[in-house]
Amino acid sequence: MASRRPDVAGAPAAAVAAAGALSAADWRDWLALLKPRVMSLAVFSAACGLLAAPVSLHPLLAAVAILAIAVGAGAAGAFNQWIEADTDSRMRRTAARPLAAGRLPADEALAFAVILAVGAVTTLALATNLVAAALLAAGIVYYALVYTVWLKPRTPQNIVIGGAAGAFPPVIGWAAATGDVTLMPVLLFLVIFLWTPPHFWALALFVAPDYAKAGIPMLPVTHGTAETRRQIWAYALALVAVSVAPWPLGLAGAVYGLTAAGLGAVFLLLAWRVRRSTITEPRAMAEEKALFRYSILYLFLLFGALVADARWLP
């Protein structure tokens, strides 16, 4: 079938409608829809789960598995932005996102998310096994529906619950290699689950006015800065305990254990400074900003040490 070039003057209504359906968004908007920064964390933790597993996957299949997990995480991010476009447009931090800013039509974004999600789960099932594919599907559904639609707008514990969605990738990586979920991937799940609240609440403390404006019940908005600081400290304690646990349990070696202990000590020090702080002016919250920045480095170094311990050290 040959496509007909529409006339300049008096273009057919169908062609004009087609022009409207073709958004002006470019590749950067489509990429932003996938939340590449969140995706990079998912890719990293999934790769670590896969590499730390006691079974080696064929390198080609391992690369496909990581790609599928990355696309699945991106699809979850796209669903999240599609659902939250209205809320995002009211917050300074998120107002420039392609859907919130109106550069991308909502129906195109939804179709994109559905295609990516189905494609990623199918590809992971074909390349590895059904356990990993089912976990990826569960992770996407959990993030898009349980977290974004149901709990995030309703409870100040939204970050805790949302942390579970971000904790799926290392378990999926492990399952992709082994076809099974044992104690070690559960501990990796718990590490990210317990890391998420201090990480995001440190951020939420210095952007609290933005969340309040958007009507999102983040903990600093609903329970104040003092309660948020107390909970950051409590989660930091639990995080460090769980992160070191694989060593005494015999699931990881001394290199991992000592690295986890050292990194955890710094995390506790920064969390304690946040706990002691009484600053309420967001721009003056240096301790919170320091904890937020360090928490990202912490997770990358911790998982890096896990892989090094499992694969390359005696």
Binding site: R5, P6, V8, A9, A11, V16, A19, L22
Partner: peptide, 16 residues
């Protein structure tokens, strides 16, 4: 509703 030459070119470029 009609297109200007610029709008048409932009549409064709996007479609391509």
């Amino acid at each position: 509703m009609t297109w200007t030459p610029d709008q048409l070119e932009a549409f064709l470029a996007r479609r391509r």
